[in-house]
Amino acid sequence: MREPLLDIKDISISFGGISAVEDVSLNISKNEIVSLIGPNGAGKTTVFNILTGVYLPDSGEIYFKGERIDRKRPQTIVKKGISRTFQNIRLFKDMQVIENVLVGTHTRTHYSLFDSTFRTRKFRKEEDEKIYKAIEILKILGLENKKDEYAGDLPYGDQRKAEIARAIATGAELILLDEPAAGMNPQETDELLNCIRYIRSLGYTILLIEHDMRVVMNISDRIYVLDDGKLIAEGLPEAVANNPRVIKAYLGGELHVGN
């Protein structure tokens, strides 16, 4: 079997004696869309926070492209190629949309304060390249016409997309989306689904936390279900949806998958 892009092995973390995540193992292959679902407080966002280096796991190991990344600093992990969006949108509201995306290119923009102060050739070349790249990314998300607006002024759905654009701009291969469809109306959700599929078609790998079952069932290659910090199921969407433990823990009843 080919080596997974991301391999999480038995990670656990507890806060003040309360176990938030317990022995969770999870793997993602390149170019997959994998969803992590579970009721509120199941520990989904905690898994994201461990993955991105915000929390240090008490035990367990995380490998990204075969390299161990747990206990690395968040900045290092971004450089290695993992980037995320946030459940509660965290854009830089007082910066233009394109500036937000340019912030995403930060770790891959190589010039010094000297270069920018004296506007050296190196600076102009790098900056032009990154602006070009930023606009290309905004095109992917259909935001190129809003590049000069302030992020805080965008409608809700566009803010979500701008966050995704910013995450892509870091040059990440694996993109973690934390409830991207939260608060979206059905039309916005459909747009978002198309977006995510399109991003995958460009070669990105996606790990998704989502509450909207329509989104999850529609888009995921595989699903992991977390309940009370523990994995209770994993597999293909249909299998997970019909798993009695999942129905009991998460859905509280029977689920009818679309079609």
Binding site: P74, S83, F86, R90, F92, T107, R166
Partner: peptide
């Protein structure tokens, strides 16, 4: 703007 988000952008 947002320190946490800045960290997550590798800053």
């Amino acid at each position: 703007g947002d320190e946490t988000a800045a960290v997550m952008m590798g800053i």
